[in-house]
């Protein structure tokens, strides 16, 4: 066994063709900023979606801190034996509350069908202070009595969209290729 900190870096072979461009990015001259609280008793998705809809925002990078959840459904990335993807999500686990939110990052964008979608990873605390976390199911995770605070930076138009990624054969958030294109069919 290699000493800690010295294992070789092993790259993974994904099922699809390797894209020549290794990242997609967009930059924005003036990103509007927002602060709001999630809504006790409502889902994580509900709180983000409603606040951003009220501000006419459909693409944003958000950070969340503090507050509680009464229930969190989450999953981890794990190998998927027998499946072509190199990794997928485990079946969701449900953690009962009260759960403390230590920190989280989220992206708001549009899914492959053009509907609002939230992708969120969080570090959370059980009642005894033990940490856990992962990919949070935004529609199934319910805000507790103390609402987490959200800071959002909004991108203009439909800047972030979920697209099918031929390399990993998964549908993932990407910067939109042509900026706002309402009603246009999505790539992939």
């Amino acid at each position: 066994m290699s000493p800690p900190g010295d294992v070789p870096v092993r790259l993974l072979k994904h099922p699809g063709p390797v894209a020549a461009r290794r990242w997609d990015s967009l930059s924005c001259e003036k990103a509007r900023a927002f602060r709001f609280s999630l809504i006790p008793g409502r889902s994580l998705f509900d709180g983000i979606f409603n606040a951003m809809k009220a501000a006419n925002v459909s693409a944003a990078a958000l950070t969340l801190t503090g507050g509680t959840f009464s229930r969190v459904d989450y999953c981890l990335a794990a190998p998927r034996p027998g499946k072509p993807q190199v990794a997928g999500y485990t079946d969701p686990e449900r953690m009962g509350g009260p759960i403390g939110l230590i920190g989280a990052s989220a992206t708001l964008g549009l899914d492959v069908k053009g509907r609002p979608m939230v992708h969120c990873h969080a570090l959370l605390s059980k009642p005894d202070g033990e940490l856990f976390g992962g990919h949070i199911m935004p529609g199934e995770s319910i805000v507790g009595a103390v609402p987490p605070v959200v800071f959002a930076r909004a991108f203009a138009g439909e800047a972030i969209r979920q697209r099918y990624d031929p390399e990993t054969i998964m549908s993932l958030f990407h910067p939109a290729e042509d900026g706002p294109f309402p009603g246009a069919p999505h790539a992939g």
Binding site: L12, S25, T107, P175
Partner: peptide, 10 residues
């Protein structure tokens, strides 16, 4: 400015 990126595998 602010930038958002999706980074591909490896």
């Amino acid at each position: 400015r602010i930038l958002y990126a999706r980074v591909r595998p490896n």
